[in-house]
Amino acid sequence: MKTDELIKMLSTNVEPVPPYAAEKLLGRALAIGAAISLILLLAIYGLRPDLKEVSGTFAFWMKMGVPLANAALGLLFIMTLARPGKPLKMGYGVLVIPIAVLWIWAIVTWLTSDPALHAELLWGNTWRVCIMNIAFLALPVGAATFMALQNLAPTKPVLTGAIAGWLAGGVGASVYALHCPEMAAPFLAVWYVLGMLVPSAVMAYLGHRSLRW
């Protein structure tokens, strides 16, 4: 086939494209995914009964804020990675800042607390289910953003998948925080971070498999 023929074919009756199509696609995916995640939380887990009392505490805002910051940073990176030829405005190192803050808080807590309490601070009562619950609540956002990315054009499929999973994990963890009773920094620094890493690893693999175009 001649290139001119192909060009003729592609341009005949071409459909208009609305502005900011990529941003809208990803924004919608995130909104729908987060809404489903919240509904799942309310339907399956329920809000923690003392939500009102703890909602003013530093620990609660760290617990919500760190995953939400991960999600926000992840979204910024994904918006850039989903479109070809767009240089990143920030280095990838920025992605670990919220985790670093969490870890500093955890280490300070660890060092300033009575060693007899260490086991309690690290394992809490729910470590067995924490990772699984966060990964489960990350699923809606992970699936929705993945479908959006398949319609976009990431030139680094594995990295894009990993950061989309990081974004999904962030949303999953912050939604789970509305139910989860744990408040100790060391617990969050280990189990929440692992919970967010699971979707990231899964989606890096999925990116390798099916984000190529």
């Binding site: 290139t3 192909l6 060009i7 592609l10 494209v17 609305p18 502005p19 900011y20 199509a21 990529a22 989903a82 479109r83 070809p84 976009l152 054009a153 175009w213």
Partner: peptide, 12 residues
Amino acid sequence: LLAIHAKRHTYR
């Protein structure tokens, strides 16, 4: 060219 066409909504 096919890819440019299929992904033209990723150009802002």
